[in-house]
C-alpha cells in the first residue's frame, strides 16, 4: 500500500460527494468512514506494516479521513439548505392578499396631530409646553396684551362673553403669555397650544372654535434676529428644508415690530394656484417682538428684558399642509374624513 492509493481514494470520494443527495451522502459516509469503510480498513491493517510505514500511512490516512468527513458535513449542510429553500418555495403565500387583524385601523385627529408635530419641533428647539385656561378675564385676554378698552378687537361681536360674569372665552392663546410670565422669571421659552373662540358665523374658513399655538421667549438680549432664526428653523422642519419663507410687516397690539410670516405655496412651488389664491404664498403665522407694555403689565423690566412672541393658526397650517378646503370638516368627525389621517 502506498501514498498514491490514498490520494486516489480521496479524489474518488470527493467526486462522489459532489454528486451526492441527502440519501446517498449517508452511503458515502458508510463506504469510506463506516465500521467497514475503506479508510477504516486501511487503519485496521496498519499492524502489518513497519513502525515507520505505520506512522507515515497512519497520518495520511487519518488526514484523508478528516478531509472526507468535513466535505461530507459541508455537503450535508448545503443539501439541507437547498431542501428547505425548496420547501419554502412550495409554501409561498401571496403577499398581496389581505392581511388580517381583529381591530380596524384607528386614527388621530389631524388637528391634534399637527399640534403634537409642531410642539415636538419646538421642544427640540428648547421650548417647554404650558397650558392656559379657556375661560379668561378681560385683563388676560386684552388689557395685559396692550389691547385697550377702545380697541376694535374688544368688540363684543367677536368675543363670547359668559353670562353673569365679567369673563369670556379666550379669543387667542396669547393670554398664555401673561400666565407664564406671571408664574416665572426670565429666561422663558414656552409654547402654549390650545382652543380659542370667535363669535362669528361659520363658513369654509371660519368656525367658532379653532386652535392656536402661542410661542414666547423672554430674556436679556433676545432680538428680532432670534425670532427670525427660530421661526425659519421651525418652518423648515415642518414644511421641508427648501420651502421659501417671507417675513412681512404687520400690526398686532402686543408686539412691535410685528410681522406676518408667509410660506411659499407647497402645491405650486410659488407659481400661483388655487390654494394660495395665485399669490404663491400662504400666510401661516403672526409674530413680533413683545411690546414693552406687555412686559410692564407683568412687572418685568422692559429695559432689561426683550422677547419675541408668535401665534400659529393650527387649522390654517393643517388645511394648507393636507389640501383641506373646509374648516368645518375638522369638527364634523365623519369617519370617512378622520380615517384618512
Amino acid at each position: 500500500m502506498n501514498n498514491i492509493n490514498i490520494e486516489e481514494i480521496v479524489k474518488e470520494a470527493t467526486l462522489q460527494i459532489k454528486d451526492a443527495n441527502l440519501e446517498s451522502i449517508e452511503n458515502i459516509k458508510v463506504k469510506y468512514l463506516g465500521k467497514n469503510g475503506i479508510l477504516t480498513q486501511i487503519l485496521k491493517s496498519l499492524s502489518n506494516y513497519s513502525i515507520e510505514d505505520k506512522k507515515r500511512i497512519g497520518s495520511i490516512t487519518n488526514k484523508a479521513k478528516n478531509d472526507i468527513e468535513n466535505e461530507i458535513e459541508l455537503k450535508k449542510e448545503t443539501l439541507k439548505k437547498a431542501m428547505l429553500e425548496e420547501k419554502m418555495q412550495k409554501e409561498k403565500l401571496d403577499y398581496s392578499s389581505n392581511f388580517y387583524f381583529p381591530f380596524p385601523k384607528g386614527s388621530f385627529h389631524p388637528i391634534i396631530q399637527a399640534i403634537e408635530d409642531i410642539s415636538s419641533v419646538f421642544k427640540s428647539l428648547g421650548f417647554s409646553i404650558a397650558q392656559g385656561p379657556e375661560i379668561e378675564t378681560e385683563w388676560y385676554n386684552f388689557e395685559a396684551l396692550n389691547i385697550s378698552g377702545n380697541h376694535p378687537a374688544r368688540d363684543t361681536q367677536d368675543t363670547f362673553y359668559l353670562d353673569g360674569a365679567k369673563e369670556l372665552l379666550r379669543t387667542h392663546t396669547s393670554p398664555g403669555q401673561i400666565h407664564v410670565m406671571e408664574k416665572q422669571k426670565p429666561p422663558i421659552r414656552v409654547i402654549v397650544p390650545g382652543k380659542v373662540y370667535r363669535n362669528e358665523a361659520s363658513d369654509a374658513t371660519h368656525f367658532s372654535t379653532f386652535h392656536q399655538i402661542e410661542g414666547l421667549a423672554v430674556d436679556e438680549n433676545i432680538t428680532f434676529v432670534d425670532l427670525k432664526a427660530v421661526l425659519s428653523d421651525f418652518i423648515h422642519k415642518f414644511f421641508g428644508p427648501s420651502v421659501g419663507i417671507r417675513f412681512r410687516p404687520s400690526h398686532f397690539q402686543f408686539t412691535e415690530p410685528s410681522s406676518e410670516v408667509d410660506v411659499q405655496c407647497i402645491f405650486c412651488k410659488g407659481k400661483g394656484c388655487n390654494v394660495c389664491k395665485n399669490s404663491g404664498w400662504v400666510e401661516i403665522l403672526g409674530c413680533g417682538m413683545v411690546h414693552p407694555n406687555v412686559l410692564k403689565a407683568v412687572n418685568y423690566d422692559s429695559e432689561k428684558y426683550t422677547g419675541y412672541a408668535f401665534g400659529i393658526g393650527v387649522e390654517r397650517v393643517t388645511m394648507f399642509k393636507h389640501g383641506i378646503d373646509d374648516i368645518r370638516l375638522f369638527f364634523e368627525n365623519d369617519l370617512r374624513f378622520l380615517k384618512q389621517f
Binding site: S124, V225, D226, S232, F247, P249, P257, S259
Partner: peptide, 24 residues
C-alpha cells in the same frame, strides 16, 4: 419698527447659532 420695516425684514440675518437648547 419703522426703521426695520423700511429697511426690509429680509435684511435681518438668519443666524443658525441661536438655539440655546434648554432641556425640554
Amino acid at each position: 419698527e419703522e426703521i426695520v420695516r423700511i429697511k426690509g425684514y429680509d435684511t435681518i440675518p438668519v443666524k443658525k447659532t441661536h438655539a440655546v437648547c434648554l432641556p425640554a
